[in-house]
Amino acid sequence: MGSVRTNRYSIVSSEEDGMKLATMAVANGFGNGKSKVHTRQQCRSRFVKKDGHCNVQFINVGEKGQRYLADIFTTCVDIRWRWMLVIFCLAFVLSWLFFGCVFWLIALLHGDLDTDYKDDDDKSKVSKACVSEVNSFTAAFLFSIETQTTIGYGFRCVTDECPIAVFMVVFQSIVGCIIDAFIIGAVMAKMAKPKKRNETLVFSHNAVIAMRDGKLCLMWRVGNLRKSHLVEAHVRAQLLKSRITSEGEYIPLDQIDINVGFDSGIDRIFLVSPITIVHEIDEDSPLYDLSKQDIDNADFEIVVILEGMVEATAMTTQCRSSYLANEILWGHRYEPVLFEEKHYYKVDYSRFHKTYEVPNTPLCSARDLAEKKYILSNANSFCYENEVALTSKEEEEDSENGVPESTSTDSPPGIDLHNQASVPLEPRPLRRESEIGSRR
Results as ranks from 00 to 15, higher is better:
residue 2 G to H: 06
residue 2 G to M: 03
residue 4 V to Y: 05
residue 5 R to A: 13
residue 7 N to Q: 09
residue 7 N to L: 06
residue 8 R to L: 04
residue 9 Y to C: 11
residue 10 S to Y: 03
residue 12 V to N: 15
residue 13 S to G: 11
residue 15 E to Y: 03
residue 20 K to H: 12
residue 21 L to N: 08
residue 22 A to N: 10
residue 25 A to F: 06
residue 26 V to Q: 13
residue 29 G to V: 06
residue 31 G to L: 05
residue 31 G to W: 05
residue 32 N to Y: 05
residue 32 N to Q: 10
residue 33 G to H: 06
residue 34 K to G: 14
residue 34 K to S: 13
residue 34 K to C: 10
residue 35 S to Y: 04
residue 35 S to K: 13
residue 36 K to A: 13
residue 36 K to L: 11
residue 37 V to S: 13
residue 38 H to G: 14
residue 38 H to S: 15
residue 39 T to W: 03
residue 42 Q to D: 15
residue 44 R to F: 10
residue 45 S to A: 09
residue 48 V to G: 00
residue 49 K to V: 04
residue 51 D to A: 12
residue 51 D to L: 03
residue 55 N to G: 07
residue 63 E to R: 15
residue 63 E to N: 15
residue 63 E to D: 07
residue 66 Q to D: 05
residue 69 L to E: 09
residue 70 A to H: 08
residue 75 T to H: 07
residue 76 C to F: 14
residue 79 I to H: 07
residue 82 R to F: 09
residue 84 M to Y: 15
residue 84 M to L: 09
residue 86 V to M: 15
residue 92 F to H: 06
residue 93 V to N: 01
residue 93 V to Q: 01
residue 94 L to I: 07
residue 95 S to W: 04
residue 98 F to Q: 02
residue 100 G to T: 01
residue 101 C to G: 15
residue 101 C to V: 09
residue 103 F to H: 06
residue 105 L to R: 02
residue 106 I to R: 01
residue 108 L to D: 12
residue 114 D to P: 14
residue 114 D to N: 06
residue 117 Y to S: 00
residue 119 D to L: 00
residue 119 D to N: 02
residue 124 S to F: 06
residue 127 S to F: 12
residue 128 K to T: 15
residue 130 C to W: 09
residue 132 S to N: 09
residue 134 V to M: 11
residue 134 V to L: 05
residue 135 N to Q: 14
residue 135 N to C: 04
residue 137 F to P: 14
residue 142 L to S: 02
residue 144 S to V: 02
residue 146 E to W: 02
residue 146 E to P: 02
residue 148 Q to D: 01
residue 148 Q to M: 05
residue 148 Q to H: 02
residue 149 T to Y: 03
residue 152 G to Q: 00
residue 153 Y to W: 07
residue 156 R to W: 02
residue 156 R to N: 02
residue 156 R to P: 03
residue 157 C to S: 10
residue 163 P to Y: 06
residue 165 A to W: 03
residue 166 V to I: 04
residue 167 F to R: 00
residue 168 M to V: 04
residue 168 M to L: 12
residue 169 V to K: 04
residue 172 Q to G: 02
residue 174 I to L: 14
residue 175 V to F: 07
residue 175 V to R: 01
residue 175 V to T: 07
residue 181 A to G: 03
residue 187 V to F: 11
residue 189 A to R: 08
residue 189 A to S: 14
residue 190 K to S: 14
residue 190 K to C: 07
residue 191 M to I: 04
residue 191 M to D: 05
residue 194 P to K: 03
residue 195 K to R: 11
residue 195 K to A: 13
residue 197 R to Q: 10
residue 202 V to T: 12
residue 202 V to M: 11
residue 206 N to L: 01
residue 208 V to M: 01
residue 208 V to K: 00
residue 208 V to F: 01
residue 211 M to I: 06
residue 211 M to L: 08
residue 212 R to G: 02
residue 212 R to P: 01
residue 213 D to E: 15
residue 213 D to F: 08
residue 217 C to T: 07
residue 219 M to S: 08
residue 219 M to P: 01
residue 220 W to D: 00
residue 224 N to R: 12
residue 225 L to T: 14
residue 228 S to N: 08
residue 229 H to Y: 03
residue 234 H to A: 10
residue 234 H to G: 11
residue 237 A to E: 01
residue 238 Q to M: 11
residue 239 L to E: 00
residue 245 T to Q: 14
residue 248 G to C: 07
residue 249 E to N: 12
residue 253 L to Y: 13
residue 254 D to I: 09
residue 256 I to D: 05
residue 261 G to L: 08
residue 262 F to P: 06
residue 264 S to K: 14
residue 267 D to S: 10
residue 269 I to K: 11
residue 269 I to V: 13
residue 271 L to N: 08
residue 272 V to F: 12
residue 274 P to V: 06
residue 275 I to L: 11
residue 276 T to N: 07
residue 278 V to N: 03
residue 279 H to L: 02
residue 286 P to T: 00
residue 288 Y to E: 00
residue 290 L to T: 07
residue 291 S to F: 01
residue 292 K to H: 07
residue 293 Q to C: 07
residue 294 D to G: 09
residue 298 A to S: 10
residue 300 F to K: 00
residue 302 I to F: 05
residue 302 I to D: 01
residue 302 I to C: 01
residue 304 V to M: 08
residue 304 V to K: 00
residue 304 V to W: 08
residue 308 G to C: 07
residue 310 V to G: 15
residue 311 E to T: 13
residue 311 E to Y: 12
residue 311 E to I: 06
residue 312 A to H: 08
residue 312 A to R: 12
residue 313 T to W: 11
residue 314 A to G: 12
residue 314 A to Q: 04
residue 315 M to R: 09
residue 317 T to F: 15
residue 320 R to F: 13
residue 322 S to D: 02
residue 322 S to T: 04
residue 323 Y to T: 06
residue 323 Y to E: 00
residue 324 L to R: 12
residue 327 E to A: 00
residue 327 E to G: 01
residue 328 I to E: 00
residue 331 G to H: 00
residue 332 H to S: 04
residue 332 H to T: 01
residue 333 R to D: 15
residue 336 P to S: 15
residue 337 V to M: 12
residue 340 E to F: 11
residue 342 K to A: 09
residue 344 Y to T: 10
residue 348 D to V: 01
residue 348 D to L: 01
residue 350 S to E: 14
residue 358 V to H: 06
residue 360 N to I: 03
residue 360 N to F: 08
residue 361 T to D: 02
residue 365 S to R: 01
residue 366 A to W: 01
residue 367 R to N: 01
residue 368 D to Q: 08
residue 368 D to K: 08
residue 376 L to A: 11
residue 378 N to H: 12
residue 379 A to T: 13
residue 384 Y to P: 07
residue 387 E to N: 02
residue 387 E to W: 00
residue 391 T to H: 09
residue 393 K to N: 10
residue 393 K to P: 14
residue 399 S to C: 11
residue 400 E to M: 11
residue 402 G to M: 15
residue 402 G to D: 11
residue 404 P to M: 09
residue 406 S to K: 07
residue 407 T to F: 05
residue 410 D to I: 06
residue 410 D to V: 05
residue 412 P to N: 14
residue 413 P to V: 10
residue 414 G to D: 04
residue 415 I to C: 15
residue 416 D to L: 08
residue 420 Q to L: 09
residue 424 P to R: 09
residue 424 P to T: 06
residue 426 E to A: 05
residue 426 E to F: 04
residue 427 P to E: 03
residue 430 L to I: 12
residue 431 R to C: 13
residue 431 R to V: 13
residue 431 R to I: 14
residue 434 S to C: 06
residue 435 E to C: 04
